[in-house]
């Protein structure tokens, strides 16, 4: 009698262990089960959702060409185009340069530019190693002397095989990247005399 009882309880425990053993979190194609549906799915559109109303299947719409949102006329030519009133590229970045701006530029550069230009700016990034058209190195005399506004314009509109980054990088961040590229150029073309006196002995 006791033997059978032990077997019975053992079976119970085994069933419980097997039933709860390893079914949680198994990869599956099946969408999540909503035990209590509540109002989890409401008849409204959230950003980037599909919609049946428009032929392209998207619920979101493009703005009508030529429309300008309030406050977004972007008529500050220096800030949004990197050009002065005569249409020439600005020699100097039109925003106030701080160390935070340079650090922001470094972060943005490493996210958006380094895949091709590499973190050093030598144009040997990982995408180039995978077959992308190599960009020129930043460390040439031509690009060291080029106007700040020109670099801003290239980020904004792209050049040759480089696409425009106007959607991914906001104008203030583009200027931060320009400033950081200038810092990169100095750092890769620096001599001993550019170092503070007290640090020079360390690298000799």
């Amino acid at each position: 009698m006791t033997g059978r009882r032990v077997v019975f309880y053992l079976c119970l425990v085994c069933t419980a262990v097997i039933a709860t053993g390893c079914f949680r979190g198994l990869p599956t194609d099946n969408p999540p089960i909503h035990v209590v549906p509540d109002m989890d799915h409401q008849p409204k559109y959230k950003p980037q959702e599909a919609g049946k109303f428009f032929p392209d299947g998207s619920a979101m719409r493009q703005p009508v060409p030529g429309t300008v949102a309030r406050g977004q006329l972007h008529d500050d030519k220096a800030f949004f185009q990197g050009r002065d009133d005569s249409g020439q590229f600005l020699q100097m970045t039109p925003v106030h340069i701080t160390s935070q701006l340079i650090e922001r530029g470094q972060e943005r550069f490493n996210i958006y530019c380094s895949p091709c230009h590499s973190r050093l700016g030598d144009g040997k990034g990982i995408m180039v190693q995978r077959g992308y058209t190599p960009p020129p190195t930043f460390h040439s005399d031509r690009l060291r002397q080029i106007a700040d506004g020109y670099i801003f314009d290239v980020i904004t509109n792209g050049i040759r095989t480089m696409p425009s980054y106007a959607d991914q990088v906001r104008p203030e961040d583009r200027w931060a990247i320009v400033v950081y590229i200038r810092a990169l150029q100095r750092s890769q073309n620096a001599g001993l005399e550019d170092m503070p006196e007290e640090l020079r002995s360390k690298i000799r």
Partner: peptide, 20 residues
């Protein structure tokens, strides 16, 4: 109780969703 604790939990109903 055990059934719902285990199978009713989002760790079972949601986690692991990997659609093609």
């Amino acid at each position: 109780v055990g059934f719902f604790w285990y199978y009713g939990s989002p760790w079972y109903t949601d986690v692991g969703y990997r659609p093609a």
